[in-house]
């Protein structure tokens, strides 16, 4: 292959026809509160880790729902498991359990 120094960019569109939603289904199977999120951002705002780095539990879950598994799994490792988000979530999403599930998925789901 000739190296032109550039390559076609991955299309920056969520293609829901090809998106890999396997992790989303798997998490929902183990914890149905995964789908209860109303994207209010309370978790991310209160997050202990989020004070120091760009980390949002809401965004991680959203990425999984759009099939962006790898980046979500990588991001999930920033969580300190402190539990503040669990105490503020208005929909009682079991946030720490979902983080643990995502971490477990790291061993099996990583594309």
């Amino acid at each position: 292959m000739i190296d032109f120094g550039f390559a076609p960019m991955e299309v920056s569109v969520h293609n829901m026809d090809t998106a890999d939603l396997s992790l989303a289904h798997w998490i929902n199977l183990h914890d149905e509160t995964f789908n209860h999120c109303i994207a209010c951002g309370s978790c991310a705002a209160t997050c202990t880790a989020g004070q120091f780095t760009n980390f949002s539990f809401r965004e991680v879950c959203h990425a999984i729902r759009r099939g962006e598994i790898k980046s979500a799994i990588d991001e999930s490792e920033k969580c300190m498991l402190c539990g503040k988000c669990t105490l503020v979530c208005p929909r009682n999403v079991n946030t720490r359990n979902i983080i643990m599930l995502i971490r477990k998925a790291n061993l099996t789901f990583r594309p």
């Binding site: 509160t33 539990g83 669990t86 079991n94």
Partner: peptide
Amino acid sequence: GGSLGITNISMA
């Protein structure tokens, strides 16, 4: 019941 030692029980 708020325990941080467990993750797999629900808020209810």
